[in-house]
Design a protein around this nucleic acid. Structure first.
Lengths: 179, 179
DNA sequence: AAGAAAAAGTTAGGAGGCTGATAATTGCGC
DNA sequence: GCGCAATTATCAGCCTCCTAACTTTTTCTT
């Protein structure tokens, strides 16, 4: 989350006025953009508030969630980082904390001596299992203003945006930026 | 932005299956929730990439944007923090950096000796003015997958969510959490 | 089979948020 | 008027993420 977003979004009329000074400004694009960032920020803040009250960070929660899946026994830090969307360096820190708290254990891979297996402890399983009902309830509460139909519509629009972004990042990531 | 979000969102069928184990899990709510966080994250990442390539942070950019409005002469740090959605302590740091870079100046308020006036320098105005066309173009590019009609629909859905969150936060903020 | 390339995990250092405490000033209740 | 509460800006310390560099091990090339 940005955690930094204009508290009072510019009104549409205001955007129209600004568009006269800046030809590149598309009012509808800007309006949707600001609302998307702002709403995402609020939703994230809400869930973050929930996690904080349970003394866990977003990162550690995600890791435990990934390790708690029934068909999963262990995962390597690199895969966890990949699936979570953080760097391997960050994952090292997350696992450090989780291990210190007794939620996960690190075990050597016997075949590949570079690799490590990360496994949820019994305690860890119990911890996440205990949090999940409250978590899902929190998600339901956050999304409660929208009907099932509206949620489907929202997902469709967001997916369309994601696809556009994914293809754009694909070509931009090949050449680093020159500052 | 969270900057930590499942890279491959759970498929809807997967959510349905999980819902059998967790009665509190509403599949449509979870699906929309995850897409919202993920898309917001991607959009933020995109704009952040733009800002980074221009050697400025989201926070400093927002401050300059607020100070650049034509009808604004100066703003106090407290107001800037309020409008930006960060704490006053964070705002102190943002202004420090902007002042060191010659983008803003601090001036004493002659009537209230606690208060400070933050004003954009001529250099600061030029800097933000130079960035805005590129910025708006970036926003337009990000939102380009959606038609005007779809953007309006998206805004409507997001507003509905925001209103629900705002009223929920209103009542939860009155009583602090007990860990 | 040897050297180069790639991959896994870690470390070190930095950026940008946050909370909580502090000092100076202002405003309010009585 | 005087003391107590609120407000302003700041500082100190923490957390979580990042990038860049490094070590060890594996894999690919030839």
């Amino acid at each position: 989350m940005p955690l930094l977003m204009l508290k009072d979004l510019p009104q549409y009329e205001c955007l129209l006025e600004a568009a006269e000074r800046y030809p590149a400004l598309e009012p509808t694009a800007n309006e949707a953009f600001l609302h998307l960032l702002r709403t995402g920020d609020m939703v994230f803040g809400d869930i973050n508030h929930f996690l904080t009250s349970h003394n866990i960070s977003q990162g550690r929660f995600t890791v435990m969630l990934l390790l708690h899946r029934p068909w999963v026994d262990f995962i390597t830090p690199a895969s966890l980082a990949e699936e979570s969307g953080v760097t391997r360096a960050t994952m090292t820190g997350l696992i450090d904390t989780l291990e210190k708290d007794g939620m996960v254990v690190r075990q050597m891979d016997e075949n590949d001596r570079r690799a490590v297996h990360v496994r949820l402890t019994k305690q860890g399983h119990a911890r996440i299992e205990g949090m999940l009902p409250d978590y899902f309830e929190c998600v339901s509460r956050v999304m409660s203003p929208l009907s099932d139909r509206e949620r489907k519509d929202l997902v469709r629009l967001l997916q369309k945006l994601q696809e556009g972004l994914a293809s754009a990042n694909l070509k931009s990531s090949t050449q680093p930026i020159k500052a």
